[in-house]
Each structure stands twice: as structure tokens, then as C-alpha cells.
Design a protein around this nucleic acid. Structure first.
Length: 489
DNA sequence: CGATCACGC
DNA sequence: GCGTGATCG
């Protein structure tokens, strides 16, 4: 809008800061802030004209109209909020804090003195004293003590530190946070422009990072194993099924419950990113297989690349590698990150990847085309013409942007469609939360028969060629206890 | 305020 | 790969 506008903006913000009005604009007197707001609107209007032309030229009209429409959905979601079981939150905080104290003192027992466990530097010193060296480096080439590094450590302090960090986060970010809403309804903030790919972001609390696995507070391995955990790392019961009957397990998702008269429904796209990947790769066989809602992408890759079948001795081994490479490709992982993800050496990872591309040459061609286009042209567009400008030296992110962004646009369109249906029919059912490939809704029993099939139909509508099936679950009653819903044919 | 870590998809 | 948030120094 010109240099004078930028200067005005900078000078005015400095003026606000000087008068301690900068934290919130409404701290400033109205006669001070009003002219600024007025100019802000005028500039926004001028920018709209510029961008509307750009949107037209780049054919991003569909994305633009979805973004405007989804804003209403987000406002309604934020307004509705999500119900929380405050009794559960308050009740679990007591044993959680007790466990946290026990774990903390056990760490001090190992170190021989009290220190700030949250300080990586202080922790590094403690580990040095114990004669333990990290095999992993941070991005700034310092010794890393992240979970990945601690996994290599034999000393029992490693697991205790993992538990202290994980449990501490649950307590602070979710359980204590929950008490801030005294009426038991949390109103998180959603941003439809939160990520460059087109994904949303969420904050206060971040409902996109609510732990999926229950946390064991008993310290008794049997408790977690009984709940079906495949492993217990830092008290995290990986793969365990939460139940109120299992004493000693807590779940953040258990805190989220429907309000009176409603049930919670979770509508989940099955392997959405892998199916979108298949669509981009244009492998007809793969796309045909996606017509089966139960098709498992990782199983298929394991079978096709390494010739194993379920029940074989090597099945778990190759299924794990297949899943790792699949995610590695859509995330744009380098060979280093991939080798860590699939628990292999770099050379082995290279070989697995080569074998993968040998069987799926079109996957290689697609990835290669994307990075070459970024390097030569500087931009790419997803299935909805959403445009991404990417520096040539970051061309490896292109595949991820396309897949993640296409998924994001599909879910956004679905949310808009669901809202239109609910408004049109004047229904009580409502959308509460979106977690990238999942929509959480509250539906009264007498609307379920009507709403559920229509909502699933809206979500499954073909916006790309490949079928994207949705799985519906009902809360039992919370987000932690899901039961798959079978719709009558 | 950059770096580190943990959680999700 | 993309996020939010807490914490440290």
C-alpha cells in the first residue's frame, strides 16, 4: 500500500507500545485507536481489490469462496465449544500430580542432586555425570536429549525423564487448562489460515495435539498391557484402549464429553493422505483398490514391494517399513529422517526406498515432477488450484504441500457443506472440532438417523477422483471411548 | 526471542 | 512435512 502506510503503521505501533497499550488494542483510548482502525479497514479494502484480481488470474476462486464460507463454521464451532467433564479433570489431577512428584524425585535420585529437568543444558550435565552420551544432535548441532535420543539410553533415568515431560504436558496444557472454563465448555480458537499448506490451526487449548494414547499412572506395566498397550514408553500406554474400569490409566480425550441431549460423533477420513497420494500418483491399480473403504495402503505396499503376506514371519517387519516409507514420502522426509523413522541404517533406508520405487515407478515420477517444477518455476498448485510459492532449495516440501493442502481443502469444503445442510434443515446437530482429517460433531439421538448418513455423504462426495471413505464413531460417551457406527444399508 | 521438546495429523 | 505451547537462557 506504499511506504507511507508502512511508516504510519510502524510509528503508530511504537506509540502504542510506549503508552503500554500494545498488548490489546482495546487498552488504548477510543479517539487514539479509532483513526488507526479506520485506516486499517481502508487498506484492507484496497488489498482486497488487488488480491481479487490475483485470485481471478490464478483461478483460486473456489478456494477463496470456501475460505470465506468456512469462517462462519469456525465462528460457530468456537461459539458452541466442547463439553468437558470437569469432575474427571479435577479427579485425575490429584493422582497425576502425585505421580509427577514421584517421577521427579526418582530423577533426582539418579542425578544425586536437584536440577531443572526442563533445561536441556542442565540435563546434559547430569547425563554426563552418569557417563551417558547422546548419539543424536539437535539442529544447532548440540547434544539432543529428545525422546529419540533417550530411547538409545540404557540408564533408567531416560524413561523417567520421558514420563516427567509427557505427564507434565498433559497436566499443564490440558487438565489444568480445563479448569479455566468454569462452566465446563472449552472454547478453543481455530484459524483457517493457520498453516501455509491450507490446513487449519487451533489454540487455547490446541485440540489438534490432544494425546491419543492413555497415560499410565500406576507404574505397573501389567495395567497398561491389560488395556492392550503394545508398549509403555515414559508411562505412555501406546495403543491402549481407554476404559473407566482400568484403574491407573488417564486419558485427555476422556475429558471431552457431549452436553445433555447430545452424543459425540467422530467422523474420520480413512488413510486420507495416502489415498490422495494414490490420486496424484495416478496408479490405476492403486486407485481402484481405494474403492474398498477397508483398503489398507501400508498392507498393500508391504505385499507388493516385499512379497510378504499377513501371517508371514516377516510381515510385521515389512509392514513397519512400508508404513514408514509411505509417511516419509508424503512428509517429504530426507533419507536421514527416514532411516530413523523405520529403524534402519541410512544405507538400508536407501535400499528400501529404491525397492519401493522399483515397484511403484509412478510414485517416483510424481515426486520428481513436483520437485523439478518447484525448482524451475517456483510454484505449484494443488487439486483446488491453491497455489504454493516455494524456494528452490526447499523443493522437497512440495509433495507434502500438495497432499496436505488437498486434504485440507476437501475437509473445509465438507465443513461448509455440512453447515449448509444443518442450517437449511434447522437442526440441532453441530460441528465442534476439526482435526485435519476428522470432524467431531454433537448430534441429538432423534437427529442421528437423518444427519449421520447425510454428513457422511457430504464428506465422501467426490472432489478428487479417488474415493475417500469416512468412518463414523460414536463417543462412549467421551472422545476417548469410540465405537464404530455401522449404518444400515 | 531462538532453541528445544512434546503432542497431533 | 505442518502446526501450538511451555520452558529455558
Amino acid at each position: 500500500m506504499g511506504d507511507d502506510a508502512a511508516v504510519y503503521d510502524a510509528e503508530f505501533k511504537a506509540y502504542l507500545t510506549k503508552n503500554k497499550w500494545s498488548k490489546h488494542f482495546d487498552y488504548a483510548p477510543i479517539d487514539v485507536i479509532a483513526p488507526y482502525c479506520e485506516r486499517d479497514c481502508v487498506y484492507a479494502g484496497m488489498m482486497l481489490a488487488v488480491y481479487e484480481r490475483y485470485i481471478e488470474e490464478t483461478q483460486q476462486g473456489r478456494v477463496w469462496s470456501t475460505e470465506r464460507a468456512v469462517t462462519k463454521v469456525l465462528w460457530e464451532m468456537e461459539h458452541a465449544g466442547i463439553g468437558t467433564d470437569l469432575e474427571y479433570a479435577r479427579g485425575q489431577l490429584v493422582p497425576m500430580k502425585e505421580r509427577l512428584e514421584d517421577v521427579t524425585s526418582s530423577i533426582y535420585g539418579y542425578s544425586g542432586y536437584e536440577f531443572n529437568i526442563n533445561s536441556t543444558q542442565q540435563l546434559n550435565k547430569v547425563m554426563g555425570n552418569l557417563g551417558v552420551k547422546s548419539t543424536v544432535k539437535t539442529t544447532k548441532n548440540n547434544p539432543s536429549w529428545a525422546a529419540q535420543a533417550l530411547a538409545q539410553v540404557k540408564h533408567p533415568i531416560a524413561n523417567a525423564i520421558l514420563e516427567q515431560r509427557g505427564l507434565g504436558k498433559l497436566v499443564k496444557d490440558y487438565f489444568e487448562k480445563a479448569l479455566e472454563w468454569e462452566d465446563g465448555v472449552q472454547h478453543a480458537s481455530f484459524k483457517n489460515w493457520g498453516a501455509v499448506t491450507g490446513r487449519m490451526s487451533c489454540a487455547n487449548p490446541n485440540l489438534h495435539s490432544v494425546a491419543k494414547n492413555p497415560q499410565d499412572l500406576s507404574g505397573d506395566v501389567d495395567v497398561a498391557l491389560l488395556a492392550g498397550a503394545k508398549a509403555i514408553v515414559g508411562g505412555k500406554a501406546v495403543g491402549a484402549k481407554y476404559s473407566d474400569e482400568t484403574e491407573g490409566l488417564v486419558s485427555v480425550r476422556r475429558m471431552y464429553v457431549p452436553r445433555p441431549g447430545y452424543r459425540l460423533y467422530m467422523l474420520d477420513y480413512s488413510q486420507m493422505e495416502m489415498r490422495i497420494f494414490a490420486d496424484y500418483v495416478k496408479d490405476e491399480v492403486l486407485s481402484a483398490l481405494c474403492e474398498d473403504p477397508l483398503f489398507d495402503f501400508h498392507d498393500h505396499v508391504a505385499e507388493q514391494v516385499w512379497g510378504v503376506s499377513k501371517g508371514d514371519e516377516m510381515w510385521d517387519f515389512y509392514r513397519f517399513k512400508a508404513k514408514g516409507i509411505n509417511f516419509g514420502l508424503v512428509f517429504g522426509m530426507g533419507i536421514n529422517a527416514l532411516s530413523l523413522a523405520i529403524d534402519s541404517t541410512k544405507d538400508e533406508a536407501k535400499r528400501y526406498k529404491a525397492e519401493y520405487f522399483d515397484r511403484f515407478p509412478r510414485a517416483y515420477e510424481f515426486i520428481d515432477l513436483v520437485s523439478k517444477t518447484v525448482e524451475q518455476r517456483g510454484w505449484i498448485r494443488n487439486r483446488f488450484n491453491r497455489r504454493y510459492w516455494i524456494d528452490y532449495d526447499r523443493s522437497y516440501v512440495g509433495v507434502n504441500y500438495l497432499i496436505q493442502g488437498t486434504g485440507a481443502d476437501i475437509v473445509k469444503e465438507a465443513m461448509v457443506g455440512i453447515r449448509e445442510f444443518l442450517v437449511e434443515r434447522d437442526l440441532m446437530s453441530r460441528q465442534l472440532v476439526q482435526v485435519h482429517d476428522e470432524i467431531i460433531m454433537e448430534i441429538p439421538d432423534d437427529e442421528r438417523e437423518l444427519v449421520l448418513p447425510v454428513v457422511m455423504g457430504i464428506m465422501e462426495k467426490r472432489r478428487i477422483e479417488t474415493y475417500l471413505p469416512v468412518e463414523a464413531s460414536v463417543g462412549g460417551p467421551s472422545w476417548a471411548q469410540k465405537t464404530v457406527v455401522e449404518l444400515a444399508a
